[in-house]
Amino acid sequence: MPTAEEMLSTSSVAALGSILHEVDPALRLTALRAAPAALPGTTFSERGRLVRDALLADLPPGFEPVDELFRAALTREDFTGWMIWPVTEAVAVRATEAVAGEAVTAGATAGSASATTAGSPSASAHPADFERGLELLALLTPRLTAEFALRTFLSADLDRTLAIVTTWTDHPDEHVRRLATEGTRPRLPWAKQVRDILARPAVTRPILDALRRDDSSYVRRSVANHLNDVSRADPALAVQVAAAWLDDPAPTTPQLVRHALRTLIKAGDPDALALLGYAPPAGLTVDGPALSTDGVTVGESLEFSFDARNHGADEVRLAIDYVVHHVKANGTLAPKVFKLTTRTLAPGESIRLAKRHSFKPISTRRYYPGEHALELQINGRPFGRATFTLSTEGSR
């Protein structure tokens, strides 16, 4: 993964200042020019906020100055890359000030207090800024992405935002169409959560339905990732949506659905597995897993094998995974599912499969010594279990 400096670098922030000054020489940009000196040692998110706030401090109040400046900057080819991130965030803040102002006023009215408080939105905020701000995000997103800034609009007024975003599903630019599905994902990585979407996972379905057949694999992959997010909150809804798509498929639909239901498949969800043709395997017998050793050290690998045979009268489709039950710091076991393969067995057919699982140290998992277990999972059902001891260096 790139570092914070490799993404939003001091040089890119300095370049942003130069571009904006050339677009509008009257701008002093004092805060933005000082920003690069404050970046070393900060995280990527901290950098984004720092540059966003510098832009907001330097620009006159209201949305119109922001709108005019960044639209003019879009005529420059070098107005692109990671410098766009804080630009879109600044757009979102200014464009949603009117909505924030409505909330402040409503709260003050309910409490019989003045609506004018320290830190209140700009008095120049206008309701139309909201729509103009979303329009500007659509213009900016091909230069990097505006998916994170879109979350500010969604949090400010979900239904109002979705009404506009849904119109982007037939936009000629694939980046804008992807913004419609990626920016509204329930669990977009790196992004703040939108509580209303998490509470109403079906609310974005019209966007997914409109884009599932998109000509762009870039857009379709976002649709699949979006539905996978939905599956974490509402598995039944995700399976229902996927089933409707498979009833009226495009040539790309089966692959999209498999990717969209991947979390449910690994979790052994019976409805998701059945939808993809992996029904409970009646007549299947499994011998194993047989382990190559009953003890392994971190840094080494564990080999295992097993035999499966179809004793039924019909062929069976098998989604074969295995589960490693890792010992946690408190001594309990935590399962982790790993994909193995898919196979189809004719009546009477048998297969023998083998796999080597590595216990090489990785940054995302800490290994603890103790008795672990390895279990087969076929079409979401457990088949066989064997235990082994994992040792760390010096714990033998």
Score class of each variant (00 low, 15 high):
A138H: 08
R143G: 04
L150K: 00
S114C: 10
A115K: 07
E135Q: 14
R143L: 11
L137V: 13
A123F: 12
G111Q: 11
R132P: 08
V99S: 04
E135R: 10
E97P: 04
F153T: 06
P127N: 04
V104Q: 04
A110H: 04
G107T: 10
E131L: 09
A106L: 12
F130D: 06
H126F: 08
R151N: 05
T145E: 11
A113L: 10
R132C: 09
A149H: 00
G107M: 02
S112L: 08
T117F: 07
A149L: 08
A146T: 13
L134I: 07
F130C: 13
A125I: 13
E97Y: 02
L134N: 00
A146M: 12
P142D: 09
L140Q: 07
A149N: 05
T152I: 11
L137F: 13
A118H: 12
A98K: 03
L150E: 01
A115Y: 02
F148C: 12
L150D: 00
S112I: 12
F148E: 14
G133D: 05
L139N: 02
V104C: 08
F130Y: 12
G101R: 07
L134K: 00
E147V: 11
L134A: 00
R132Y: 08
A108M: 12
A128K: 04
V99N: 02
L136A: 05
A123C: 12
S112M: 11
A106T: 14
R94Y: 05
L137W: 07
L150R: 01
L134Q: 00
S114I: 09
T116Y: 15
L134E: 00
A123Y: 11
F153Y: 11
G107V: 05
T96V: 15
A108C: 08
A98E: 07
L139S: 05
G107Q: 03
A103T: 14
A149V: 15
A103G: 05
A106H: 08
H126K: 11
L140E: 10
S124G: 10
T152K: 00
L140S: 07
A110D: 12
S122D: 12
V104I: 11
T105N: 07
A95E: 01
E131K: 06
T105P: 08
R143Q: 10
S124N: 10
A118P: 14
T152S: 07
A95S: 01
G107P: 02
A110T: 15
A123W: 12
R132F: 07
S112A: 09
A110F: 06
T116Q: 14
P121H: 06
P127H: 01
E135S: 14
V104P: 09
V99E: 11
T141D: 14
A100E: 06
T96Q: 05
S114K: 09
D129L: 04
S112R: 12
F153K: 01
A108I: 13
D129R: 02
A125H: 05
A103E: 12
T116W: 14
A108H: 02
A103C: 10
L134F: 00
R143Y: 06
A123P: 15
A110K: 05
A149G: 10
F153G: 00
A146K: 04
L134W: 00
L134S: 02
A128D: 02
